[in-house]
Design a protein around this nucleic acid. Structure first.
Lengths: 118, 118
DNA sequence: TTGTCATATGAACAAATGTTCATATATTGA
DNA sequence: TCAATATATGAACATTTGTTCATATGACAA
C-alpha cells in the first residue's frame, strides 16, 4: 500500500502540488488561524468586539446594548476570553470587559473593508 | 409594554450604552462581517485559501495537496465561491481556482500575525 | 454516440455551536 | 449572617456545519 485515501481525485500536477506544499504554513498554525477566525464568525461576538472598540463595558451593558440575554453574553465572553481577545477587571459586583489585543482591530478592519465594498 | 426581552440584566450605564450604540455599524454589516469570518473559520477552507495564495490550482491538486476528498474540496470551493473569495476558469475538463479578491490576503495576514505571536 | 475523466451536487449523518433555563458563585450593604 | 445584585456555568435542545457516499453533469477522445 502506498498511502492512505485512494480518492478518485485525478492528480494533475504533482510538481506544483509539491511546490505549494513547501510554502504552506504548518498545519497547526493554519488550524489555530481557523480557530481564531471562527471566534470572529458569529454576529453576537462580532458585535461584542465592535462595542468594546468604543469602550470597556460590563456584562449588563452588553446585554442591553445588543439585546441579548445576560447568559448568552456571558457565554460568549467566555469564548472571547479563551481566545484571549478580551480581558476584564472587577469593580465590586460589576465586571468590565475590554479588548486584550491590538491585532483585533486590524483583523476586524481587514474584514470590514471587504464587506463594505460596492 | 415597554420593550421586548425583560432580562434580569442589571442595566448599569444607559448613557454609555447609548453612546456606544451610536457608533456601532449597522446590524446588517456586522452580520455580513460575521459571515465573512465564518468562511475563514474552517481549517480546510483556510488551507485552500492559503494554497491559492501561491498559485491557481485545480480541484484534484487541492484534494491531493490537502489530503481531503474531491467531494469535500468541491463543497468547500462552493462555499468560497458563494462568498466571492475565489473565482475559476475552465480548461477542458479541468477547472482552475484562484483567489478573487485583494482583501483576502490582508484578512489572512491580520489573523496570521495574531496567531504566530509569542 | 460512447466511454472516460474532472468536477459538482444532493441526501444523510455525525459533530460542533449558540441559546435558553435553572442554578451557582461572588461581592456588597443592611 | 442575610438579602440583593452581577456574573458565571452546566445541561438540554435546536441549528448549523463539514464530511461521506452515491450519483449527476460537462467536456473530451475514440
Amino acid at each position: 500500500m502506498t498511502d492512505e485515501l485512494e480518492q478518485g481525485s485525478g492528480v494533475i500536477h504533482q510538481d506544483i502540488i509539491d511546490k505549494v506544499k513547501a510554502e504552506l504554513p504548518a498545519d497547526e498554525i493554519l488550524y489555530d488561524l481557523a480557530e481564531l477566525f471562527k471566534v470572529f464568525g458569529d454576529s453576537t461576538r462580532i458585535k461584542i468586539i465592535c462595542a468594546l472598540f468604543e469602550k470597556e463595558l460590563c456584562v449588563g451593558d452588553l446585554s442591553v446594548l445588543l439585546n441579548v440575554s445576560q447568559s448568552a453574553i456571558s457565554h460568549q465572553l467566555r469564548t472571547l476570553k479563551q481566545a484571549r481577545l478580551v480581558k476584564f477587571r472587577r469593580d465590586g459586583k460589576v465586571i468590565y470587559y475590554s479588548l486584550d489585543d491590538d491585532h483585533i482591530k486590524n483583523i476586524f478592519d481587514a474584514g470590514y473593508k471587504h464587506v463594505i465594498e460596492e
